[in-house]
Design a protein around this nucleic acid. Structure first.
Lengths: 345, 345
DNA sequence: ATGAAAGCGCTAACAG
DNA sequence: CTGTTAGCGCTTTCAT
């Protein structure tokens, strides 16, 4: 064959020839084997540098039987929250010999093919799944996968055997509601995602659960008028909020399951000329970048840390698959800014 | 050797044995070679499926002498604008057999090592450089690189030989200033990045150039009081704006070289209780996602399209390195929202 | 301490 | 149409 090989690159054999040693020795030098005479090592290194030789990673991978790659499977990776997690992943991985392959998932079909095939077809050494609950039918395959898999920000009862990195959405929702209740609010609305998201996201549902817990604890009865859900998005949240705020007895505070949706609520208030926070308190979730600009009170998740923790767990497990299973919890934090205030009526 | 090979994977030889053919034939089947009998093809496919065989890409790469990977070198990839470009890249690449390796650059040192080494050490088949002007000393290496390199959003006089995808920042700046001038503004401020950015970004400078052109064309003299620069960032832009707006004769409009900086200007106006747009018009650049929420008038760059165009050029050149050099221009567009208005005085 | 040689899984030239 | 074979560049036993 005549491979379209990257042309003029010297190979390990060239180095060996120039240094008057065997390829094996050069390999040993490259891998810092202790069993090579100091003078030889020197000579080899000199040749390596004069030839500007760099090992071919692909050959190395094949020979080692390792791909030196990890895959990250992430939905809508341009969303602010996912990007921040990814940054944690990318930056941490930059110090290692591992490559990152990003699989962006935007439909259930994509998830199906990627989750099912990646561990096999792509020959990766590890997989990081972010924010993406697996479908039931793939669970068995995942459990018997030959490569380690770590889940970040996915809550699923069947993941008891995997390393996990999670924020506590239930607790986050509780913190948000608690804050409003402590301020004196009793009529509190919730705006979140539909519970049956095609990709099965659970965060909105869990945040709502925490929210309800806090209300129950404060003996505030659940009122379905104060509960609205739609497909994720700022504009739809705005519609829901406008409806809720024109109720005969509107809420004095609204908890949005994400900052994006909180922005929709802010717009609704502006349209209806309801002063925030004087007549309406608003709290979001995530603490995405604009939240600070908007002065939005919110629940912060340390997204960068969660991405970083995910790779760390994965790399450790790749080194030793038998270590005990770990669950890392990334704590949420209430960030009080200027959209929450005691109720006015 | 005893490679930690991905354990139980069948190889091409297993398939061959089970199908009673040679590995070569299996390879031909896999690669859709026309020179294989239909019945054989069928039989081989059956075995492939029953064995759940999938080819080892690493071996394939080594044998082909191609890495089937492309590298993208991008600064601060979490910035909204870069993310959007990346999405164009990732989504377009998902349909191909190529992997993406992301190199996030945040310092000149990182750029130096990555730009210099990637084409060699990493064995990639192509490189996409986003928003990152090369340092002079690396230009020769880039020009003689063995792999195709495409630059997206980098303006540099020495890039005459490369495929390029660019927005026209000068024209964008012109459009922005022109819009303000057409509204009747004469005292127009500019807030942008420092011209000597360590990574050599040129966009702010070019936008300013277009801005000045428009002013000159309208016979508005340049006033250095209305010109302020600092390190990129919302808060610093806010400081500059506050200073500019408390001048004895403050500008009636401000052009910020990015939406992020425009947000700083908005904050400054709010602090100083200057009504926008009645007493102060503000126009930004980029049309990042929040711009719409804020009602910010801005210059839109079609970022997704630029990322996509970048990979397309790259893939085409990888197929045929001898095609004529191309320059794709992604047009800017003035998006008028509610932060610009005729001057009030 | 070093060389020789086999092998990772695949492709492609060559022969038939 | 198909089998055989060499080889991609590297690592790692096994000898010496």
């Amino acid at each position: 064959m005549k491979p379209v090989t990257n042309s003029s690159h010297p190979t390990i054999r060239d180095v060996a020839r120039h240094a008057g040693v065997s390829p094996g020795t050069v390999s040993r030098v490259l891998n810092n084997s202790p069993l090579v005479k100091e003078t030889t090592r020197q000579r080899v290194w000199e040749v390596i540098e004069s030839l500007n030789y760099t090992p071919n990673l692909i050959a190395r991978r094949l020979s080692l039987g390792k791909s030196l790659r990890i895959a990250v499977i992430v939905p809508f990776f341009t969303r602010p929250a996912e990007v921040e997690r990814l940054r944690g992943v990318v930056n941490h991985l930059a110090h290692t010999q591992y490559d990152l392959v990003i699989h962006n998932i935007e439909t259930p079909e994509q998830r199906a093919t990627d989750l099912a095939q990646i561990p096999y077809r792509e020959w990766v050494d590890g997989v990081l799944v972010i924010s993406l609950p697996p479908e039931e039918e793939f669970l068995p395959r995942l459990k018997t996968a030959e490569v380690p898999i770590v889940f970040v920000d996915v809550h699923h009862p069947e993941l008891r055997d995997f390393d996990l990195v999670n924020g506590d959405d239930v607790r986050g929702g509780y913190l948000a509601a608690r804050h409003l209740i402590d301020l004196g609010h009793r009529r509190i609305g919730f705006i979140g995602d539909l519970p049956d998201h095609p990709l099965g996201f659970t965060s909105s549902r869990d945040r709502f659960e925490g929210f309800r817990n806090a209300l129950a604890e404060a003996n505030i009865p659940y009122d379905s008028n104060y509960h609205a859900e739609s497909v994720h998005g700022q504009y739809l949240a705005q519609m829901l909020a406008e409806k809720m705020l024109t109720l005969p007895s509107p809420p004095t505070a609204i908890f949005a399951a994400s900052d994006t949706q909180a922005m929709g609520v802010l717009t609704a208030a502006r349209h209806l000329r309801i002063p925030v926070p004087e007549h309406l308190s608003i709290i979001g979730f995530d603490d995405i970048q604009v939240a600070e600009y908007l002065g939005l009170t919110t629940i912060r998740q340390n997204l960068y840390a969660s991405g970083k923790a995910g790779v760390e767990l994965l790399l450790e497990r790749m080194i030793d698959p038998k270590i005990e299973r770990r669950v890392v919890e990334i704590p949420n934090e209430l960030i009080i800014r200027s959209t929450t205030f005691p109720p006015n009526s």
